[in-house]
Write a protein that binds this DNA or RNA. Structure first.
Length: 246
DNA sequence: AGCACA
């Protein structure tokens, strides 16, 4: 084949931060950030989700992963994911996020602010100075203690590792494990029905300790998952919630 | 369409 068309080459190199656009602009930013974090944190630890309300930045978000390989997995898996009725468009961010630069010591406060008010500028510099000092030697122990992300080169090897244990893609049905065997559908309903979109709980008599919980859509299921992940019905039974396989 | 660090 001599001609290959339709390729806008993905020329942006890998980045721990994903740049996402085509987001639904009607969603309020707090909810949007929460839902983005909820949906993306299944792929790895997320350090920060940024959105901005200025016109130039509507419908866009930056999701900062702790680990570039997790970011790239998330990019692949979630590309085009229908999110608030619009397919997400995901790319790597063009530049390193400040939170990363601060952690690896390469952060340089940017000089050029768009708006030039001197008082605010001066105050900002002082704050940044303080923040830098406080942040020196800062160390993220990822919430799940996974990986030694920042200390290593992002581009190790070159072999593409197929992840065998890829999580199930987002689903409006949740799969709940590690329940006490005496749990009843009623008990679970009390917990799960507090999240919007709740439809029903299903349990299988023959398989104690698990349940399926259905919501109206993936987003609602995801929010419930985030809210109840690890919830303990008894001290020995932190709930393990994932998406049900389709 | 639009790549920032509130």
């Amino acid at each position: 084949m001599s001609t290959v068309t339709g390729g806008d080459a993905p020329t942006v190199p890998q980045n721990m931060t994903l740049y996402i656009n085509n987001l639904n602009e009607k969603i309020n930013l707090n909810e949007l950030k929460k839902s983005l974090r909820a949906v993306f944190s299944q792929y790895g630890n997320i350090l920060e989700v940024l959105t901005f309300k200025t016109l130039k930045h509507k419908g866009q978000a930056w999701v900062v992963f702790e680990d570039v390989s997790k970011a790239s997995e998330a990019l692949k898996q979630m590309q085009g994911f229908p999110f608030y009725d619009k397919p997400m468009r995901i790319q790597y961010a063009k530049t390193k996020s400040d939170i990363i630069a601060k952690a690896d010591g390469t952060f340089v406060p940017r000089e050029r602010r768009k708006r030039h008010d001197d008082k605010a500028e001066r105050k900002r510099r002082e704050q940044q100075h303080d923040a830098n000092q406080a942040g020196a030697g800062l160390n993220y122990a990822g919430a799940y203690g996974v990986g030694p992300p920042l200390s290593q080169s992002p581009f190790t090897g070159g072999a593409k590792s197929k992840l065998p244990e890829a999580p199930a893609p987002p689903n409006n049905i949740l799969f709940v494990q590690n329940l006490p065997h005496e749990s009843t559908p009623m008990m679970l309903q009390m917990l799960f029905c507090q999240y919007p979109g709740f439809k029903e709980v299903r349990m299988v008599e023959a398989k104690p300790g698990i349940a399926f919980v259905e919501y109206g859509d993936e987003i609602q299921a995801t929010v419930a998952m985030q809210g109840l992940q690890g919830f303990k019905i008894t001290a020995q039974n932190p709930m393990l919630i994932s998406y049900a396989k389709k």
